[in-house]
C-alpha cells in the first residue's frame, strides 16, 4: 500500500459518501444518472468476485464490501425507494449504456491478462469503469446547472483514478515485475474523460460561480 493508492481509495469512498449524503439529505436523485450507478454496480460485482477466494487484507475485504454495498444501495434507492425514485428524471438519462457493457465485455474477451473466468471479468470491470461515467457526464451537460453535491461527487470520482495513476507509476518504479498495463491504460482513458469536467470545475471554482458545462 502506498500513499497514492490510499488517497485514491479514500477519495473514491468520499465520492460514494457524498452521493449517499445528497440522496439521503435531499431525498432526491435529480441530476444523478441511474445508468452510471448501474454500471458501477456491475463494475464492483464483476471485479470483486475474488472476495471470498483471495484474502488480501482486512482493509481490502472491508472496502470491497463497502463499495459493493453502497453501489447496490444507490441503485436500489434510485429504482425502488418510494420518495427518491420519483425524482429520477429518466427522460434525460438516455445514454445507451448497454452498448458500453457489451463493448467492454467483447474487449475483455480479447484483451486480458489470462483467459480465465475471473481474469476476463476483471478486465471487463476495468474497461467498464473507464467509461461508466459517460451517462453521468452527458446528463450533467443536459441538465445545465446542477446542485453542488452532484458536482462534488463527480469531481471526487474523477480525482480517485488520477491518484491511482500516481500509484501505478510509483509501483512501477519501486516494484520489480510490476505491470498493470490493462488497469493503467484504462485508468488514463478514465481520467482523460473527466478532463473537460475538471477544466470547467476549476473555472467555476476560480470565478466562485456555479459549474456551467457547455451544452
Amino acid at each position: 500500500m502506498n500513499i497514492f493508492r490510499f488517497a485514491g481509495d479514500m477519495t473514491h469512498l468520499i465520492s460514494i459518501l457524498v452521493l449517499l449524503l445528497k440522496i439521503y439529505a435531499t431525498k432526491s436523485c435529480s441530476g444523478i444518472s441511474l445508468k452510471t450507478q448501474e454500471l458501477y454496480a456491475i463494475v464492483f460485482v464483476a471485479r470483486y468476485l475474488d472476495l471470498f477466494t483471495d484474502f488480501i487484507s482486512v482493509y481490502n475485504t472491508v472496502m470491497k464490501l463497502v463499495f459493493i454495498g453502497c453501489s447496490l444501495a444507490i441503485v436500489w434507492c434510485m429504482r425502488l425507494h418510494r420518495v427518491v425514485r420519483r425524482t429520477y428524471n429518466k427522460d434525460v438519462d438516455t445514454f445507451r449504456h448497454y452498448f458500453l457493457v457489451l463493448g467492454c465485455f467483447l474487449l475483455a474477451l480479447f484483451v486480458h491478462e489470462k483467459f480465465t473466468f475471473q481474469e476476463v471479468l476483471w478486465a471487463f470491470s476495468i474497461y467498464l469503469e473507464a467509461v461508466a461515467i459517460l451517462p453521468q457526464l452527458v446528463l450533467l451537460q443536459r441538465s445545465g446547472n446542477v446542485d453542488n453535491l452532484t458536482v462534488q461527487y463527480v469531481f471526487f470520482l474523477g480525482a480517485y483514478r488520477a491518484f491511482y495513476i500516481l500509484n501505478w507509476i510509483y509501483r512501477y518504479l519501486t516494484e520489480p515485475h510490476f505491470g498493470r498495463w490493462i488497469a493503467s491504460v484504462a485508468g488514463l482513458v478514465q481520467t482523460a474523460l473527466y478532463a473537460d469536467f475538471f477544466y470547467y470545475y476549476f473555472i467555476s471554482w476560480k470565478n466562485n460561480a456555479k459549474l456551467q458545462l457547455p451544452a
Binding site: R5, D9, D54, I56, N60, M63, E113, K114
Partner: peptide, 10 residues
C-alpha cells in the same frame, strides 16, 4: 505459466 499476481488493488 505463472499465475498472475493476486489483485491487491480495489
Amino acid at each position: 505459466c505463472l499465475q498472475p499476481p493476486p489483485k491487491d488493488e480495489l
